[in-house]
Computed example of a mutant assay.
Amino acid sequence: MRRVEDTMIVRAAPQEYICGQGCWNLLEHHLERRGISSALVVRGGRSWEAAKGYFPDFKRLELQFYRYGGECTYAERDVIASEVTRLGLQAIIAVGGGKVSDSAKAAAALLRIPVIILPTLAATCSAWSSLSVMYDEAGTMVGFEVFPGSNALVLLDPRVILDSPPELLVAGIGDTLAKWYEADAIISHLSSPSEEIALAHYAARRCRDNLMAHSAEALAAQESGELKDAFVRVVETNILTAGLVGGFGEDYGRTAGAHSIHDALTILPETHRLLHGSKVAYGVLVQLVLEGKLEEIGRLLPFYEEIGLPATLKDMGLSGLTREGRLSVAARAVEPSASIHRMEGTFDAVKVADAMEELESLVSALRARETAAACR
């Protein structure tokens, strides 16, 4: 029997979700269904330029537009909320990637008004989840906010995502692949997982299986501009299936070692140019070293190389990071509040720094072996 203090809160899904080519054209209809007559459209910069041709004309409802400042900070949340209040609007519509969505969700939660998400990227599950990852002005991750209300509506048009930069889809694959490795590291040690946690574990496994099976074909389809089933499946895996992991599993299905490594890397200014999912993908491999699952790294490495995910510090342009620098990153990764501590075992900065160094040597050896085999 679970105690009250152990009770999980399931935030499985948005209130409504539609995936289909042209579904953005339904936006005005769905706002009217909700009694919404005015909204602030929070948009990005480059993502808006690519997606604005898909944004529908409104005939009856009032829209105001706001370009977000480029980072999901508490200050940005407050500016968006102030705009909504100043203009007397009833809802927020986010059109963009994860940081646009997270900024809009945070502002909507502050005002307790509906938020509607129109994703232009499939780089994270932000469009699905009822939380926002918060950063400071320098781009360092400072925490996350979980909200009591779900997103009111998500309209996912895969044609819009098809026009996004392929490297952002690759990053989304890296971030979503981590769902399995992080959730499994936490859940596999439970003697009797609840039904919610079991569903999170299943969704996490499906993330891995879908991505391993369809990512290469999806990226080829994107390169050729063809809207194929493999592409749609990967996009929905990155947004819907990935969102279900944390939605059902809460802390058991959110983050563990891989995201702790990501968060720690953000203390290095030179990593701010790197995509979230790329750093998480690297973190997966560091986590596997910490778990002693070196054979799994050997199985993953060909997949990483096929789609362009980084496996080492060198791959990320960080080969000059000293032992002292690695220890600084590792110290951030094992702070008391870090999600790495959801895994079995105890972790300190030396252990994590050693794992980072071991990964460099292991990947180098695996690549040398692969090269030698190809030359025979």
Rank of each mutant, 00 (worst) to 15 (best):
E5A: 06
V42A: 06
D57K: 15
E49A: 08
R3D: 07
I92P: 07
G98A: 05
G45W: 08
S47H: 13
E83L: 03
Q64A: 15
N25Y: 08
F65L: 07
L89T: 10
E49C: 05
E71Y: 02
K52V: 12
R60N: 14
I36S: 05
E62F: 02
Y74R: 15
A94E: 01
A94F: 02
C72T: 13
I9K: 01
W48E: 11
G53Q: 07
W48Y: 10
I36N: 03
T73R: 06
T7V: 15
D78H: 14
G20N: 07
L26E: 07
V95E: 00
L27I: 01
A51N: 04
R3V: 05
A91M: 08
E32W: 07
D78T: 04
V10T: 13
D6Y: 15
I92V: 05
K59V: 14
Y54A: 02
R67L: 08
R33S: 11
V42W: 00
A91W: 00
I80P: 08
I92N: 08
R46M: 04
A107P: 04
P14D: 13
K105H: 00
T73N: 09
M8G: 13
G44V: 13
W48F: 07
K99C: 06
I9Q: 00
N25M: 14
N25A: 13
L61P: 05
C19K: 12
L27V: 09
A39T: 10
P14A: 14
S82E: 03
Y54Q: 14
D6A: 05
S82R: 02
G35A: 07
R67N: 11
D6M: 07
D6L: 11
G69I: 09
G70V: 06
L87R: 04
G20I: 08
R60K: 05
R3H: 09
D57E: 07
K59Q: 15
E16Q: 12
A104Q: 08
E16G: 06
G98H: 13
A50E: 14
R67G: 08
I80D: 09
K105Q: 04
G22P: 02
A75E: 14
G96A: 01
A50Y: 11
R3Y: 07
S82T: 10
S82Q: 03
M8K: 15
D6K: 15
L31M: 13
P56S: 09
G88Q: 10
A12F: 12
E5W: 14
S82C: 01
Y68I: 05
C23A: 10
I93Q: 09
G22T: 05
L61E: 04
I80V: 12
K99V: 00
E16I: 02
A81K: 03
C72I: 07
E16P: 03
A104L: 11
R86W: 00
A13E: 15
Y17K: 03
R77L: 14
G45S: 12
A104W: 14
V42L: 05
A50K: 11
E71I: 12
A75M: 01
N25K: 14
Q21S: 10
T73F: 11
V95W: 00
G97W: 00
V100R: 00
S103I: 03
S37H: 15
D57V: 14
V95T: 06
Y17A: 02
T7A: 13
R46N: 12
A81V: 10
T85F: 07
K52A: 07
T85C: 01
P14M: 13
W24Y: 00
V79I: 05
A51C: 12
I93W: 03
Q21N: 02
D102S: 04
H30K: 09
G70K: 10
A13T: 12
W24P: 10
V10Q: 05
A13Y: 13
